[in-house]
Design a protein around this nucleic acid. Structure first.
Length: 675
DNA sequence: TCTCTTCAGGTGCGGCTTGA
DNA sequence: TCAAGCCGCACCTGAAGAGA
């Protein structure tokens, strides 16, 4: 076992490393700002800082500014191509660093090794020293030196994720294998189904049409509606498992609950890790590898099946025909040249792994024309030409050219602000097919509409608005393009909006180069605009609803007022004591939603699901800002007047209790009525 | 002779049944 | 109620064969 503490201290020893270690906290502050701005919504989730599990730990102050957030990975490496070894190792990943540095050799911290040749009988015994060390560091704090300020501080360690491939996750979570009846690694509660006379369960979401399967008797479940992991039954089920003292009962209980034992990481302090099963994650690498194997064997009809499964009925197995399979492979190879990013991705991946190879010159190449805003022209024709009639007409349609069009110089490439290079058909057509990397198809905006086109070439056209006035020349940076048709609507529909097939039209048009935008950035911009509009819509709707309610009521309530119990006679729970008394009644035990019954609307109906999520989102956004501004109120009643966003939340008397943490606030939310 | 691939049988584990 | 054993699955192992 290699101690974690000294490795973490060493990771912070240089000013640059210390600066990198601040990434997570700085990024978190930006996300909290955005949360506040967008009223609790997170538009794009592409980092762990956007995850609610992480943000909840921040808001609960389980993770503080100087804390180190860790992820631990367990796997068995294969050292020889054709020889399996039962050698295991587990490593720490520091999530405080920028994501692109998480898996750099320099920053991956080895922790423990379990030697081969035999598989370890009790893996916990090997993991225990490392986790005992982590627990001690969590308890005592890790002394750190900050080279940026030459100061010392105590850092807390927070274990946010444990990860491994699916078969190995059982060593972290203490659950049955994925073939078990309750085999979900995230403990979502969906039971698997098994074939007749079999005990291997599969996580099937859809039921067979013609017969009933044994196992979980759930109806069809849509893939996008799978319950979130972290079933609340986990703790209760764990209590059941540990309370059993004979083999038979244990066998029954582990099938019923999907648990076999309490996992080792439950020994960590509850506020210093996400806990089980929330911290259990699987890695995408194994998922993509397995999926491609399964899909290919389905399409090729090579998947091993039970004797009663007739592969001749597999209408999807079109690659059973070997000639078609070979022909398809050739098509894929040819299609590669039409994927402009492929070669660049390979180069980027190599430079990411070996940054010392990155000796590329900085700045624009010799002979380039800087157009500003990150755009630059490269590689031009050595002489100027007179454009043909079709191009001349297209330029005249676009530019205010009053006199005869001057000669122009063709430019082959345009450097875009994101570093991509848009090329032109003029030069690409001269290359042999095997050297071609098609990247002359671009998106651009014209009349506020996005078009796709093939760039013929780029050029600069000089125009003179008032020829009688000497020296009044303006240069226009334009692209000469051929438009693509609108995508085939039938193909688009058949492919679930994935395959957009267009044909190249013989229509020449021109557009400003600055209107050519990289697709990804354009999408992000549109998404941000969409979310802003959605938020504005929500705010306006809420205001309208309040106005309508006021007009419809003879005694409109002022915003921020406390609703009196007598005004809402159907509401049951105005005090926590009353709710606690109710939970001991038979009525409560017969109510499936008894845990949420205290959440009531004005008519005494229980608030569930969507509205509850909405309440959580709104409150978390509000609380994030209050914590950040150090304005978190001691009593919620006082806090309700702090900001206009709190208007509209009315609090019953029980909500006046003191709030110490964000979690406490969410619990207190139970006693609020949302207008 | 060495390396690599394939494949059949062995092994471990979860789930279940059976009989004392 | 409990222990023993069976079944099915996935994974593991090592022998055999192909090819360099």
């Amino acid at each position: 076992m290699i101690p974690l503490g000294p490795q973490l201290q060493a990771c912070n020893r240089s000013p640059k490393a210390a600066h990198d270690m601040q990434y997570l906290w700085e990024c978190t502050q930006k996300v909290l700002d955005k949360l506040w701005e967008l009223n609790g919504a997170i538009p794009i989730v592409d980092d762990i800082v956007m995850g609610w599990d992480y943000l909840r730990a921040i808001l609960d102050r389980d993770i503080k500014k100087h804390d180190i957030v860790l992820m631990v990975l367990l796997d068995s490496p294969q050292l020889y191509e054709n020889k399996e070894l039962d050698c295991w190792m587990y490593i720490w990943v520091i999530l405080n660093l920028p994501p692109q540095k998480w898996y750099r050799k320099l920053h991956v911290l080895p922790s423990g090794f379990i030697p081969s040749p035999n598989k370890p009988k009790n893996l916990d015994s090997f993991l225990f020293p490392g986790f005992h060390h982590l627990t001690a560091l969590q308890h005592e704090g890790l002394p750190m030196w900050d080279p940026l300020t030459d100061s010392r501080y105590i850092s807390g360690l927070y274990l946010i994720f444990t990860t491994a491939d699916v078969p190995s996750l059982i060593y972290w979570d203490g659950m049955v294998r994925h073939s078990g009846k309750n085999g979900c690694r995230l403990y979502c509660g969906i039971q698997g189904c098994c074939k007749e006379n079999s005990t291997h369960y599969y996580p099937a979401l859809l039921c067979p049409h013609d017969h009933i399967v044994s196992g979980g008797h759930h109806g069809d479940i849509k893939a996008l509606e799978v319950p979130q992991g972290g079933s609340t039954e986990y703790v209760n089920n764990l209590k059941k498992i540990v309370s059993i003292h004979n083999q038979t009962q244990w066998d029954k209980m582990k099938t019923e609950t999907g648990l076999t034992k309490p996992p080792l990481i439950l020994g960590l302090h509850p506020t210093r890790s996400l806990g089980v099963p929330l911290c259990m994650t699987t890695d995408v690498m194994h998922l993509t590898g397995n999926l491609s194997d399964l899909l290919l064997s389905l399409w090729c009809g090579t998947l091993s099946v039970s004797p009663n499964d007739d592969k001749s009925t597999w209408d999807w197995a079109m690659f059973k025909d070997n000639d078609l399979w070979i022909s398809h492979g050739e098509d894929v190879k040819k299609a590669g040249v039409h994927l402009p990013g492929v070669q660049q991705c390979q180069v980027n991946a190599l430079l990411s792994a070996l940054p010392e190879l990155d000796d590329s010159a900085k700045g624009l190449p010799h002979g380039s024309i800087d157009l500003g805003d990150g755009y630059a022209l490269r590689k031009r024709l050595k002489y100027s030409i007179l454009p043909d009639a079709q191009v001349t007409q297209a330029i005249r349609n676009y530019l205010p050219v009053s006199e005869e069009l001057p000669r122009i110089t063709k430019q082959a490439r345009l450097l875009l602000p994101n570093g991509q290079i848009a090329r032109s058909a003029w030069r690409e057509a001269l290359k042999p097919p095997h050297q071609l990397q098609v990247s002359h198809n671009v998106k651009f905006t014209l009349d506020n509409k996005v078009h796709v086109s093939e760039v013929q070439y780029f050029t600069q056209v000089a125009t003179q608005l008032h020829p009688e006035q000497q020296g009044d020349w303006t240069f226009h940076n334009i692209a000469i393009m051929k438009l693509y048709s609108e995508p085939d609507t039938e193909l688009l529909k058949l492919s679930s909006q994935v395959l957009a097939a267009s044909t190249l039209l013989n229509q020449i048009i021109t557009a400003y180069m600055h209107n050519i935008t990289p697709l990804k950035e354009h999408c992000k911009t549109l998404e941000m605009q969409l979310f802003k509009v959605a938020v504005e819509h929500d705010i306006l709707k809420a205001t309208l609803d309040q106005l309508a309610a006021s007009l419809g009521s003879s005694t409109p309530l002022p915003l921020g007022s406390i609703k009196a119990a007598e005004m809402y006679p159907k509401m049951q729970f105005w005090t926590q004591t009353k709710y606690n008394e109710w939970t001991n009644t038979t009525e409560a035990h017969g109510n499936h939603w008894w845990k949420l019954t205290y959440l009531e609307d004005g008519d005494g109906n229980t608030i569930l699901d969507d509205l509850l999520k909405g309440i959580h989102k709104k409150i978390q956004g509000i609380w994030a800002k209050l914590v950040e501004k150090d304005m978190a109120p001691k009593t919620w009643g006082k806090g309700a007047c702090l900001h206009p966003h709190l208007q509209g939340i009315h609090i019953s008397p029980a909500g006046q209790e003191r709030l110490e943490t964000g979690l406490a606030m969410q619990q207190q939310l139970s006693w609020m009525v949302l207008e």
